[in-house]
Design a binder for these strands. Structure first.
Length: 571
DNA sequence: GCCGTTTTCGGCCCGACTGTTTTCAGTCG
C-alpha cells in the first residue's frame, strides 16, 4: 500500500528533476504544492482511492496529478519520474543542496563542464574552471567551493527543544542592543513544529545596521553568511542557521505574520489578498501605495476578512477555510492540563522516588498524576512483576492518605508482547486506576502484524491508553510500520485513548496523526513520560503538538477533573 | 500543472541580498 509520504516524495523528486531540466517554474511549483497537500492530509490517499473518491477535490491536485497518483498507487512507480531520472544524472540533486547553488547554476555547470557530482564540482572549482564561465565570477567560485566542503557537516533539521535553547539565548542577546524595541522568534519555531530548519528572528528597531552589528558579536556565532540593512543570516557553532530581520514598528504585525509562515499558508492568504486588489508583504497590507494594515497580525488577517489564526494551525491544511466558516478550534492551552498520566520512578528506570514525583506534580499545579513504571519484560529498565507492582500500589495508597487535594493514580506502562498480549496478568491490571500500554520490542514486524498487535492489546478491557503509539524518535528513527487509520478507528471503537508523548525526542503521536485521532473521536492523553522531576515541564511540548493537531480542551483526557477522568476511563 | 465572483486562457506571492552586472539573474526564505 502506497503511503502518503511516499507519494509526496515521488512528486518532490520529480519537481527537483524538472527544475534542473529547466521546466516551467509553475509546473514545478504545482508538483511541490501537491506534495505538500498530500503530506498534510489526515486521511490515507490509498484509502481514498479504495473508496473511489475524487482526488481532484484536493487542493492543488487536478486531473493529471490525480491520474499520476492512481498510477503510483496501482503500479508502485511513476513513469514520468523514471523518465526524468533517466535524463538527469543522480548527482545533480545533491549539488542543489549546496548553499548558493540552485537548479539553474547546476544545469549550467553540467551542460558546460559536465559536472555531475560533489567531487567533480570541487575539482572544477579548484582548477578555476567555474569562474571562466559567463555569469560565474571569482567570488561565486570561491563560495561554491566553501559551501561544497561544508555540505557534509551541515545539520539537517534541529529538534525544537534544542532550537529553543539557541533561540532564547540569541533573543536575550539581541534585546540588549540599543534601540531594539521587540524581539520575537517566528518561523516554524513559532508554529511549534517538532523540528526547525533554521531560526527566523524578527526585531523591531529603527536602525537595522546597528542590530546586525550587535548580532554578529554573539559568542555562539561561527560565521556571518550575509548581512544587509534589514536582513542578516548567520550560522551558529551548533550548525543551526539564523535569519534576523529588522522592521519598523508600523510593520511589526505584517512582518511577524510573514515570517511565521508556513510558506504554503502565506501563499494561500496572499492569493486572497490579490483577489481583493490588495498586496501583502512583510511591511503590511497595501492598496497601491497606501498601507491598510501592518501594526498587528489581527489587522492583517482582517484585511482578507479572516479572524486571527493561531501559528500552530498555519500549515494550509484547511485552517483558512475553517476560519472563513467561523469553525476554527478553540485550541487547548497549557493551563487546561490538570495532570500527567505517564511517568517513572526509581522502582524502574526513573531518577526520582514516588514521593518526589508526586511533589513535582503538585508543584506543576496538577490535581493528579499517574505513576506508570515499566513491566517485567523490560528487564533492562528493571521492570515490575506483579509482586513488585503490588508493593508499589500499597506505597501509593499510603502516600495518598497523606496528600491533600492531590491524587497519585495507580498505573503501569505495561509492555505489549509480540502477539498483542500484555506483559502482566489481568488480575493485577484490574487493581489499577488506569493502564498504559506500549510497544518496546520487535519493531520490525510487518505492517499488518504490527497493526494487529496494537489492536489485540486494545482488546484487553483493562487498557486505557496506548503510549507513544508509533515508536518514532524525532531525527532518530521512523517508528514501526502501522496502518494508522486502523489503529485510530480501533481505538475509537474500543474507547481507548491514544497518547501524545511530550518528550521532545518523541512527540508521538505526530501532528497529522493527532488530527486523524480527533476526527475519529479518539480521546488523547498528553503525557510527559518523565524519568526525572525536571521533565514534567516537557508537558508544554506535548500541548504544542496537540495544538498542531487542532485539539481543544475537550479532546484531551487529562484536562478532566479527577472525577471526570475516572468516568472517562470506564470502557 | 492548477485554476476561475475579472478569466477555460493566461495568469500563477513577494522581497532581500549577492555577484556580475551597467539593469538583472539567481538564490533563498
Amino acid at each position: 500500500m502506497m503511503q502518503n509520504a511516499e507519494i509526496a516524495r515521488a512528486f518532490n523528486q520529480l519537481a527537483d528533476l524538472l527544475e534542473i531540466q529547466g521546466a516551467n517554474t509553475f509546473r514545478v511549483r504545482a508538483y511541490r504544492s501537491a506534495a505538500q497537500t498530500i503530506e498534510g492530509l489526515s486521511v490515507a490517499i490509498a484509502d481514498m482511492l479504495e473508496r473511489e473518491e475524487d482526488l481532484t477535490t484536493l487542493d492543488g491536485i487536478g486531473k493529471d496529478l490525480a491520474d499520476k497518483i492512481a498510477t503510483l498507487h496501482r503500479t508502485g512507480s511513476l513513469p514520468a519520474l523514471a523518465e526524468a531520472q533517466q535524463q538527469v544524472p543522480p548527482g545533480l540533486i545533491e549539488l542543489t543542496r549546496i548553499d548558493s547553488l540552485g537548479p539553474k547554476r547546476v544545469k549550467t555547470l553540467y551542460d558546460e563542464l559536465g559536472i555531475d557530482s560533489l567531487d567533480a564540482l570541487k575539482q572544477a572549482a579548484r582548477e578555476q574552471r567555474i569562474s571562466a564561465l559567463s555569469g560565474f565570477g571569482d567570488k561565486t567560485e570561491k563560495k561554491i567551493l566553501e559551501e561544497a566542503e561544508r555540505l557534509n557537516q551541515q545539520a539537517g533539521r534541529t529538534r525544537l527543544d534544542e532550537a529553543q535553547q539557541a533561540a532564547e539565548g540569541l533573543r536575550q542577546h539581541i534585546e540588549q542592543c540599543d534601540g531594539v524595541e521587540q524581539v520575537v522568534v517566528a518561523g516554524s519555531y513559532r508554529r511549534r513544529r517538532e523540528t526547525v530548519g533554521d531560526l527566523d528572528i524578527l526585531v523591531v528597531a529603527e536602525e537595522g545596521r546597528r542590530v546586525m552589528a550587535h548580532v554578529a558579536e554573539w559568542e555562539e556565532i561561527e560565521r556571518v553568511a550575509l548581512s544587509g540593512d534589514t536582513k542578516t543570516t548567520v550560522h551558529l557553532k551548533s550548525g543551526l542557521q539564523v535569519d534576523v530581520r529588522v522592521v519598523p514598528e508600523e510593520s511589526f504585525g505584517a512582518a511577524l505574520y510573514y515570517f511565521t509562515g508556513s510558506q504554503a499558508h502565506n501563499v494561500a492568504v496572499r492569493k486572497m489578498a490579490v483577489a481583493r486588489g490588495l498586496k501583502i508583504n512583510e511591511y503590511g497590507v497595501f492598496k497601491g501605495d497606501r498601507q491598510l494594515a501592518g501594526h498587528t497580525e489581527e489587522a492583517v488577517f482582517a484585511q482578507v476578512e479572516l479572524p486571527w489564526i493561531a501559528p500552530e494551525l498555519r500549515e494550509n491544511r484547511g485552517e483558512i477555510e475553517a476560519a472563513q466558516r467561523g469553525k476554527l478550534p478553540q485550541l487547548i492551552t497549557p493551563d487546561d492540563i490538570r495532570g500527567d498520566l505517564h511517568m517513572h520512578t526509581t522502582a524502574t528506570d526513573g531518577k526520582a522516588s514516588l514521593e518526589e514525583m508526586a511533589e513535582a506534580g503538585r508543584r506543576q499545579g496538577y490535581n493528579y498524576i499517574a505513576i506508570t513504571d515499566h513491566s517485567q519484560r523490560l528487564a533492562m529498565a528493571n521492570g515490575l512483576d506483579a509482586r513488585r507492582l503490588r508493593e508499589q500500589l500499597t506505597a501509593i495508597d499510603k502516600l495518598n492518605e497523606q496528600l491533600k487535594r492531590f491524587t497519585v493514580l495507580k498505573s503501569i506502562e505495561v509492555d505489549i508482547l509480540e502477539d498483542g498480549q500484555l506483559d502482566l496478568p489481568d488480575d493485577v491490571l484490574a487493581e489499577l486506576d488506569l493502564c498504559v500500554a506500549s510497544i518496546h520490542s520487535r519493531f520490525n514486524l510487518d505492517r499488518d502484524r504490527q497493526t494487529e498487535r496494537l489492536l489485540r492489546a486494545m482488546d484487553n478491557p483493562h487498557v486505557s491508553i496506548i503510549a507513544h503509539p508509533t515508536g518514532r524518535i524525532v531525527n532518530g528513527r521512523d517508528g514501526y510500520e502501522l496502518d494508522m487509520q486502523r489503529v485510530v478507528d480501533g481505538a475509537a471503537d474500543r474507547g481507548v485513548c491514544l497518547e501524545i508523548n511530550a518528550q521532545p525526542a518523541r512527540l508521538d503521536l505526530r501532528d497529522i496523526h493527532v488530527r486523524m485521532a480527533k476526527e475519529a473521536g479518539v480521546l488523547i492523553s498528553i503525557a510527559t513520560d518523565s524519568h526525572a522531576t525536571g521533565q514534567l515541564a516537557h508537558m508544554a511540548f506535548g500541548v504544542d503538538q496537540a495544538r498542531r493537531g487542532w485539539l481543544e480542551k475537550d479532546d484531551v483526557l487529562n484536562t478532566r477533573t479527577l472525577t471526570q477522568l475516572r468516568k472517562a476511563l470506564k470502557r
